[in-house]
């Protein structure tokens, strides 16, 4: 074995190839080729199936830029992503802090598991459970009317807040998870040093803890923002008629209107926007890490 290196790892692509090829071929066929095909189809007038006439066109992209509906909806989806991400930070970061710095030992392990357990359950089912709670005559309505002396009507179902609540519920465990991992890595003695040098709690938080946990915050934000911008099932179920977003329009083009080239173009525009946002976040993440 002359090609062996001292550390035991060996060089050369040849011996690695049989092990690598099956997995990467599969990824190529099911992910990378489809994504390339989507770009290709987005420039067509119709799908080249069953002898249908087709030609190359920029019309699908022109549709996005000429009809303000699409860009309005894209902005609505970006806003939705931003709002959900912010709520997840507000709710998830303190929880991650308590988990990492207050709780100890077995109780920490148990609660950590409890927090991330729901996000391993079906997202669709979780959204459906909110429909139970939020609708008129639903649980929240009944419970509040039983407790409060006066009659109120809670009907959050099919509203923008309902979509926000459902999405925050689905995605907040990501934020807890990523922030917990970075917060846990902060050495307690750094915090103690800051305190003993006369910094107030707030100063320690602002100058030590938040900067050091920034990679977790950004990673969590990316993990939440990206899928929320492309969400369509949650707005459909909880938003009803108010739940029209960019994702639901793409869904419509593919399963209801059957204008696949337009759907592909809209998808590709979303992908481009998401990639630009991730690219902007990447250097911040690297610097913070």
């Amino acid at each position: 074995m002359a090609d062996q290196l001292a550390i035991g790892s060996r060089s050369g692509l040849k011996p690695a190839l049989p092990l690598l090829l099956p997995a990467y071929l599969w990824l190529t066929v099911a992910i990378f080729l489809p994504l390339s095909a989507m770009v290709f189809f987005s420039f067509m007038t119709d799908l080249p199936l069953a002898g249908k006439e087709w030609a190359f066109t920029l019309g699908n992209y022109a549709a996005f830029f000429s009809q303000s509906l699409y860009s309005t909806l894209l902005f609505a989806s970006l806003r939705l992503g931003l709002e959900v991400t912010l709520w997840c930070v507000v709710i998830g970061y303190p929880a991650a802090y308590v988990l990492a710095k207050v709780l100890k030992g077995r109780s920490r392990e148990a609660i950590f598991l409890l927090v991330i357990l729901p996000f391993w359950s079906n997202g669709l089912v979780r959204i459906f459970s909110w429909a139970m709670v939020l609708r008129e005559g639903g649980i929240l309505d009944t419970a509040l009317n039983a407790v409060l002396p006066f009659k109120i009507n809670i009907d959050l179902m099919y509203s923008y807040p309902a979509v926000i609540i459902g999405l925050v519920h689905s995605y907040v465990p990501y934020m807890v998870l990523t922030c917990y991992l970075t917060l846990q890595a902060i050495d307690d003695s750094l915090i103690e040093a800051g305190r003993s040098l006369g910094a107030s709690r707030r100063q320690v938080l602002r100058r030590v803890i938040i900067p050091l946990s920034m990679p977790g915050l950004i990673a969590g934000a990316a993990l939440i923002f990206v899928p929320v911008v492309g969400s369509f099932m949650e707005p459909r179920i909880l938003g009803g008629r108010t739940g029209t977003f960019y994702g639901t329009v793409i869904e419509d083009q593919l399963v209801a209107v059957f204008n696949w080239p337009l759907g592909a173009a809209l998808s590709f525009i979303l992908l481009a926007v998401v990639l630009i946002i991730l690219a902007l976040a990447a250097p911040v993440l690297r610097r913070a890490g």
């Binding site: 994504l35 989507m38 979303l270 998401v274």
Partner: peptide, 24 residues
């Protein structure tokens, strides 16, 4: 690095792309 697009790209986009490609 190629492992990250399948995780990072929203499933809506991946699903759309697969539908179009598999049909094609």
């Amino acid at each position: 690095a190629l492992l990250f697009p399948p995780i990072a790209i929203p499933w809506l986009i991946t699903g759309t792309a697969m539908l179009i490609f598999f049909f094609g």
